[in-house]
């Protein structure tokens, strides 16, 4: 496990050219991730960056880290497997709102309750872009899309409240309308010792609403610091997070001031405690009847 203060954002940018539509919010997100990773200073080969399926899930390939563009909704289990195999790695996980809160929604609560030192970044654009504009789990109720021709009936999920309720130790939100803020919040999330979550309001330029574009965010966004929120105040975080969809708060909703031990630390402890000198080829001895 090493850090290198000389690493700069560019060291994390791969030669692969993004396929995202020009104007996509994810261009800003990947820039912010380069910045955050340079700030943390771990060399790219010590970083594993996992994603699912969706436009935003292409993101690991645009970094020089080890990437894993897996299957729809399953980035978190794979990321946890990586952390389990090698806790020294910096493990990042990313995907869209469909990946994280529809098809893969069941995994989030369990990742949180294990509390591995993994950072989960959701690029939340309230739409399915890769498949051309269908309703997503965070689409506002009544939204007309190709799969909700006359307007949807469903209420959107609130990712921020989900994560807070599950017990996540770090919950934040960002937007490409504030690049510096986004980069610093991602860096802070990575540095948090435990499971951290950043919801990024990353607009879809092709299927998103006008009011959801970066330009609109500039006038909508409100930093949590500016409204006097203390990130150690979990109940306060719940209240502010409940305005997801109405207010665009940026910054840290909640950071556990006394982070509990991580899953990785706990299983390392178990391994150390139970380590045996008995070689693997003696494993069958226990079955011998005498």
């Amino acid at each position: 496990m090493t850090t290198n203060p000389l690493l700069v954002a560019k060291d994390f940018k791969s030669d692969l050219k993004p396929i995202w539509c020009p104007g996509c919010g994810d261009f800003g997100v990947v820039q912010a991730i380069y910045r955050a990773l340079a700030g943390v200073g771990r060399p790219p080969h010590e970083i594993a960056f996992v994603s699912g399926i969706g436009c935003s899930s292409r993101i690991p390939g645009y970094t020089t880290a080890y990437g894993f563009n897996s299957v729809h909704g399953r980035s978190l289990p794979i990321a946890q497997g990586i952390k389990m195999a090698n806790p020294d790695l910096l493990v990042l996980c990313a995907g869209g709102d469909g990946d994280g809160f529809s098809i893969g929604g069941g995994h989030v609560a369990h990742a949180v309750r294990r509390n591995p030192d993994i950072t989960y970044i959701v690029m939340d654009n309230q739409i399915y872009g890769l498949t051309k504009g269908q309703l997503s789990p965070t689409s506002p109720c009544g939204l007309k899309t190709v799969t909700s021709t006359y307007g949807s009936f469903e209420q959107p999920v609130n990712p921020l409240l989900y994560l807070l309720s599950y017990g996540a130790g770090f919950v934040a939100q960002a937007t490409p309308a504030d690049m510096a803020g986004m980069a610093s919040v991602i860096e802070e999330a990575i540095r948090y010792p435990g499971f951290s979550f950043v919801n990024i309001q990353s607009p879809c330029v092709t299927y998103g609403q006008e009011t959801q574009q970066v330009k609109a965010h500039r006038s909508q966004m409100k930093s949590l610091a500016s409204v006097g929120h203390d990130p150690a105040n979990r109940m306060g975080a719940f209240e502010l997070a409940s305005h997801y969809g109405e207010e665009l708060y940026t910054g840290v909703f909640y950071r556990n001031p006394t982070p509990p031990p991580t899953y990785d630390a706990l299983f390392r402890g178990r391994q150390a405690e139970l380590a045996t000198k008995v070689p693997r080829d003696r494993i069958l001895d226990m079955f011998v009847q005498r």
């Binding site: 399953r74 497997g81 952390k83 195999a85 090698n86 069941g106």
Partner: peptide
């Protein structure tokens, strides 16, 4: 699903 995901992640990590 997660259980095979964990195994795949671990394998990827060597």
């Amino acid at each position: 699903i997660a259980s095979i995901g964990v195994a795949i992640g671990s394998s990827y990590a060597g």
